[in-house]
Each structure stands twice: as C-alpha cells, then as structure tokens.
C-alpha cells in the first residue's frame, strides 16, 4: 500500500519543433485523477498519448499549462511518478535483480531497503529469475521485470505507456489480470495509455478518449462495473460500443 497522490492537468498544451515549424501535439487538456484512481487514455495512434505521459512523468516540460501532483507543480522526473514503457527497456548488462534494484540505487536506498526486491519479484512471479539476464527472458517476463522495477519504488503514480502492446494475446490477457491485482493491492494512481478498448474497460475506472493530433479530450466515461470484470457482460459490450463510436470507428457488429 502506498500513499497515492492525485494528479491534475491544467490547460496542458504541448508542441514539437519540426524543421522550424511548430507541430502541436496536445491541445488544452484538462484532466484530474483522484488519488488511487485508474485512468485509461485511449486514442488513435500518434495522437500524443505518450507525450502526455512523458509530461506527467516530468521527462519533458509542457509548452503551456501545468501538471500538478498533490497540487504541486511537476518540474522534473521523480521516483514517485514512474513511467513504464512499451518496451521493457531493461538494461541488458544487468541481471533481473540488478535491474529491479535500479531505483533503490539511484536514491541510495539499496543498503536499507534491498530486501524489498525479493518481495516484489515474488509479487510479479519472477522469483527464481533474479540472476537471469534480460535476453534470457520471454516478452511477458521482461515486462513483468519492468513493472517490478517501477513498483519496488512504491510510486504514488504509475504511468504505463502501452505496457502490454508487444505481448502475444494470451500473455496479454493474463498480464491484464495481474496488473489489476497489483493495482488493487498497491493502490497507486494509474494512468494507462492503450489503444486496446477492451483492455481499457477491463482495467480502468475511467476511460478518457482523445482525438487525433493535436489531442483534445473527446469524451470521458466512468466505467461503472465492479471488479473483476467480465468481457462478455452486457454492460461491458455496451461501453465498448460507445467508446468505439467516440473513436470514430464504424461499428457494424
């Protein structure tokens, strides 16, 4: 259990410079997540969802507007907000254990809190793989190690940038259930970027639909379904239908 923190995006806009020309990616995004809330961000590919997460993480500074955590402005990256990428991006020269230890090392906590690594490896089902190198892991295991590397720091906010997109569909389903369990146990505030509508509905309490670039919020849907959710339930299908429509997809089925 961690001290979750609320996150608020206030009139957040961002643009890139491409050969001198401004390329707007985010257009006045207003969004608030309560402490411990699970928010999914859905949108067409290339719409700026990943940029949004990078701004919340503090890896980039917004062009206009502000990112606030517990009502304090986010200026730079901090281990209380951790970003999990689409690729596991484990360091190939470190073993699983050393990868997971990364955050504790940067913060000088490895001596005192190194014991947490074992607990977290057990939590994500990687006990026994401590000394494996990343190239020896399957895609699902590598992504689990990446999750462990984030969770060992007990982040208040976990930012996930399509963390399951590169996994095969079977692994993805079981990882979604594991992610659910982890969130229910640790109760961090979660932002999940995905373009899998089912994944968003299965995991999130609220689904935010973004437009094409520059991204604006098109719709917000509260997912009023108890956990664990059933993908076949009537309400689930209804919500999926509704979101696909918001995304501008032809829904004939």
């Amino acid at each position: 259990m961690v001290a979750a923190a609320g996150v608020r995006l206030a009139k957040l806009s961002h643009q890139f410079r491409l050969r001198g020309a401004a390329l707007p990616v985010l257009d006045t995004i207003d969004l608030a997540a309560a402490p411990g809330e699970f928010v999914a961000l859905l949108g067409p590919s290339g719409c700026g969802k990943s940029t949004l997460l990078r701004l919340i993480a503090g890896l980039e500074r917004p062009h206009a507007g502000r990112v606030l955590m517990s009502e304090r402005s986010v200026e730079k990256p901090d281990p209380s907000r951790i970003l999990v990428f689409q690729d596991p991006t484990l360091y190939p020269w470190r073993t699983v254990r050393q990868n997971v230890a990364l955050g504790l090392e940067t913060r000088g906590l490895i001596r005192t809190q190194g014991g947490r690594i074992d607990a977290i490896l057990r939590l994500v089902g990687l006990d026994g793989f401590d000394n494996a190198f990343p190239h020896q892991l399957s895609g699902g295991m590598a992504q689990r190690a990446a999750l462990a590397r984030a969770l060992v720091n007990e982040p208040s906010v976990l930012l996930m940038d399509e963390p399951l997109a590169n996994l095969d569909s079977m692994t993805r389903l079981s990882m979604q259930a594991e992610l659910m369990a982890l969130w229910q146990r640790e109760r961090f505030t979660a932002f999940l970027v995905t373009h899998d509508v089912e994944e968003a509905l299965y995991l999130a309490e609220r689904v935010v639909v973004l437009s094409r670039r520059p991204a604006r919020i098109v719709a917000e849907l509260a997912v009023d379904l108890p956990y664990p959710r059933h993908r076949g339930s009537e309400r689930f299908v209804e919500l999926r239908h509704c979101i696909l429509e918001q995304l501008g997809l032809q829904v004939d089925w």
Partner: peptide
C-alpha cells in the same frame, strides 16, 4: 546508447553522474 535507457533512469531519479557511470558507460562497453 538507446535514449530510452536514460529516460528509465531519469524517471527513477538518477543523477547526471549515475547516467554517465551506470548507464552510458556500461551500455557503451
């Protein structure tokens, strides 16, 4: 060095020194 390696370390609170000694150099070995 894969730029994402730096992002990972930075979100975990790494200092400039850590980025050079523990990320850039081992990745370049």
């Amino acid at each position: 060095v894969n730029a994402a390696y730096y992002d990972v370390a930075r979100t975990l609170g790494a200092s400039q020194r850590f980025l050079i000694l523990r990320v850039a150099i081992p990745a370049a070995m």
